[in-house]
Design a protein around this nucleic acid. Structure first.
Lengths: 337, 337
DNA sequence: TACGCTGCAGAAAACGTTTACAAACTTTTT
DNA sequence: AAAAAGTTTGTAAACGTTTTCTGCAGCGTA
């Protein structure tokens, strides 16, 4: 590939001049500028980013460390972030840690080696092993979706506790007296907070509830909701509503209900959490506690960019509200028992 | 951040020796190796990837250029590719071109500047503007999901025509005599091939069909299927089955049917295309022509890696089979008219 | 005429690696 | 014991940029 040197030679100028033309920095006479531009054109010149990064000590690369790319929530999140950063002249390096702390560390090392200018991370669990690499490399990070208490970083997230409370209250208000809750027992701070909020609401209103929390790393699996619902529905008396702390799990729940011959919502109300686009197109359409997913992404990117380059900037802690979206998968319980 | 120089100083050896230890190349005595390793440890050394890329003339970065990250098909595809490449020591730079030819070009430039070792691209349309950048930079690419005739590259895809034929035949065999087809009129070679295959099957068996193809760039939108179905269902006589050339569109179709008071599948059969995981969890579960999405991703990555570094390697053209998955959204049509 | 500006361009150093080459030892072979 | 071969280490050049510094015109002012 052509280098700046080739251009200089062809245009009959020095390296410095070419560089000045490329970066529109310093003064260069119109005549020479034209020559250089022409030379770039004929040689199909594209600047060498690694060389530039080396010299400038910035890469314009942002690391995005998330658990999974292939599920709606993280997919839209990644997409939103990507769009925002692209517009600002940054590219993203995507890493899906698969809810595995080891991979998380491995990826973090990769990102620091790559000298990314910053990183947006949705931590897998409570493990903090990865964080020290960023700290040491002095790479600013923002935490998204999941809160981690002991780490000096900006945060952008939703009030999960409140969301859980909100979702449960919807069921309470509909008159449900026996509710199933689907969570996960390991990691995922966010989901546990939702659970706390939901339990609080149910407790306050004397509604019986049963929590099912399989010991897995992620609730973003259809089948998990399916299996969990099967368990909950086999109880006597069975719950008249299930609150799955993830939309994806809620979809599994609806499927399980139908497979057991229970109609949604008449025999079983189902409510999810996340607000993925798909929810509106399910049959019945899914009632859910929606997060402003795209906004979450934009905000995170924005907050991060405010910190890259500047050392002194304060850590920001942004909390966005959840919104209850009532659709067709919840209704009043049948009176009969 | 610590550099190789700092390590050398601390360990009391030369730069070359440190480099040899890091890369496990050449011979270095056990004693010195230990010292170097210790120094790296205490300084928290992480090699500078841009510098290394500059010198080695390889980045171990692969560009992934796809239309959208936020929809199930491309999400799983990206995820599969990412996993495969990670295991081989490559990272991916994700670019979602949003079905926009300009952005596609812009992204391609970015990738060549970044000196990626290769790229996997699902082209937006028939425009080839982007291709020349890769060619000029001598960056190997593999085309995925979408075929582009006039371009020298490896390809990994599914036999879309055959898949379309297969899906339509399913409806024919069930006894449908009037079928609606949902496609898109612009771009997307793959989807047009599916349409051709489906029309051929219907034609061969004298089944009446109506094609609805909105003039948009992507069929990966729930609402598109919804709107299209509304149009098709307003016809008299109305079709007893709809074949949506994308699962996402099919979901929109099912929703539209219900909103019109039509039961799926008894009053309207719906079949999709893609085989996204979600399909199995819909109510009713979606019949679809499935692509081996993950395999598509693995294969593409594998084929690409065979070409990076080596100049002479042949272009490969891999076609994977589609598979009809019959679930609950299709059935025989009602006899009454 | 002498002086200091200003605008423009080039030389050269630097960024952090890898690697070809050479030098200094060791070991083996004759 | 000398020569040959091998092992271990260091020096320095190179990768493609950006940027500091310096120099040279040309110009206005005193």
């Amino acid at each position: 590939m052509a280098t700046i040197k080739d251009i200089a030679q062809l245009a009959g100028v020095s390296l410095a001049t070419v560089s000045r033309v490329i970066n529109q920095t310093g003064n260069v006479s119109p005549a020479l500028r034209e020559q250089v531009l022409a030379a770039m054109e004929t040689l199909n010149y594209q600047p060498n980013a690694p060389a530039r990064s080396l010299r400038r000590r910035e890469t314009r690369l942002i690391g995005l460390l998330i658990p999974q790319l292939n599920h709606p929530f993280f997919g839209t999140l990644a997409y939103a972030i990507e769009r925002f950063l692209f517009a600002e002249g940054f590219r993203i390096l995507v890493c899906s840690a698969e809810e595995d702390a080891d991979r998380e560390v491995e990826y973090t090392q990769l990102l620091t080696r790559q000298r990314v200018d910053g990183a947006i991370v949705a931590p897998t669990g409570l493990a903090l092993d990865w964080a020290k690499y960023f700290v040491h490399a002095n790479i600013p990070i923002v935490l998204i979706d999941r809160n981690l208490p002991d780490i000096a970083a900006s945060r952008v997230m939703v009030d999960n506790w409140q969301g859980g409370y909100q979702g449960a209250m919807h069921l309470v208000e509909l008159g449900h007296r026996r509710v199933g809750l689907i969570s996960v027992s390991r990691h995922s701070q966010a989901i546990r907070e939702r659970l706390q909020g939901a339990m609080q609401a149910l407790h306050e209103h004397n509604v019986a509830y049963e929590v099912y929390e399989p010991s897995v790393e992620t609730l973003q699996q259809y089948d998990l909701g399916f299996q969990a619902a099967l368990k909950l529905l086999s109880q006597q008396p069975r719950p008249s509503a299930i609150f799955a702390l993830t939309d994806v799990a809620a979809i599994g729940v609806m499927h399980a209900a139908v497979s057991q011959g229970l109609a949604v919502p008449s025999q079983l109300s189902v409510i999810g959490f996340d607000g993925i686009e798909l929810g509106a197109y399910l049959i019945p359409a899914l009632t859910t506690v929606a997060q402003p997913i795209e906004q979450l992404g934009y905000k995170a990117a924005e907050v991060l960019l405010r910190r890259v380059g500047r050392v002194q900037a304060e850590h920001e802690h942004i909390v966005l509200p959840t919104q209850l979206i009532v659709r067709a998968s919840t209704s009043m319980p049948l009176l009969a028992e």
